[in-house]
Design a protein around this nucleic acid. Sequence first.
DNA 1: ATAACTCGTTCACTTAAGTTAAGAAATACG
DNA 2: CGTATTTCTTAACTTAAGTGAACGAGTTAT
Lengths: 192, 192
Amino acid sequence: MQNTLFEFISKYVSLTDDEKNAILSLDLFRSVKKGTTLLKEGQKSQDSYFVLKGCIRVYYIIDGEEKTTAFYTEMDALTPHCVINKAPSEYFISCVEDTILTVSNSDMEIEINSNFPKFETMCRKLSEELLVKQQIDFDEFKTSSPEQRYLNLLQKRPGLIQRVPQHQLASYLGIKPQSLSRLRARILEKKG
Amino acid sequence: MQNTLFEFISKYVSLTDDEKNAILSLDLFRSVKKGTTLLKEGQKSQDSYFVLKGCIRVYYIIDGEEKTTAFYTEMDALTPHCVINKAPSEYFISCVEDTILTVSNSDMEIEINSNFPKFETMCRKLSEELLVKQQIDFDEFKTSSPEQRYLNLLQKRPGLIQRVPQHQLASYLGIKPQSLSRLRARILEKKG
DNA sequence: ATAACTCGTTCACTTAAGTTAAGAAATACG
DNA sequence: CGTATTTCTTAACTTAAGTGAACGAGTTAT
């Protein structure tokens, strides 16, 4: 499990064994049951997450309806808006599956930063990379239909469709669950 | 015009007069005519932009059709994907209006960085801020209908609708120009 | 000045998504 | 084990977006 974390970090900076041990001594690892809510709307939080195993999702509740906007799975890092904003959260975060993740708060990060300047470099690289990735995702979303989005997702994250309830997937694609069912039936028809 | 740049920078770090002069000596300012293409699909580029006056847009050409995904206006900064990726650009950038902007390339940024560590701090803060802003925009896009998106845009960037051709605005909203016309007529009906 | 083009709008028609409702299948729970 | 609940699918109907075509207004080019 720890290897997953270090494998991720090694994409951005290389750590000595001392540095690795320093990180391990922070005791960041947590096990969370399916259905657990990590963050609620209106809450203030300092916690960032890194998913080692399992799946967590971000969703809003708008007019009483859940609107899922993101799924984070193995090797995905998530810093909620409210941590950057220092404002109450506008959304919920909860576990789709039993999940193992690291939880780190701002104080810890400041402490790591002061001991290991490398860490700051990693954060800069990471947020630059995420910015570009997200911009590409957004562009793809804007320029394609729900059906294309679904086919796209099948290619890019083939596992996700199996792991996640359809109604959550539907709202992630910007449509209603009924439309997703219909759309899938339509695709099968075309193929067969 | 220079004040606009320093006003922007002052949101992230404070500069001494010496530092300001060092930036001015780089001769970053450019005037560009409406319609000029700053970046083409397939091109490699190192240039980042900051809009002082005017408007530039990002668009893809997919199946021969322009798909506009972003407009940048006064005080907006833009680093194209290809600068981070070091891969050929997937999209075009061109001027919607006569525009004044700063153009800086990676080499310059590295040089500024080595002389003013402040500058690196600014970049980190900026990309964190942009990441959150963009995530919120994406979430809003996913969770709303074209009509809601249009009304939203009217509120958030009221000037933009006047400054930009309707067909570009339509594809920015994820719909066809005809649908935008219809949608606007529908809204007027409801009001009147 | 006229022809060619671009741009925005409108219309009729097609296609796909939203809505409401019902029922089957899977899951959770006492 | 069976009951309740959630999840997924199907269907009929409504609403909105896509498509293709036509038109007028404004722009550009020759």
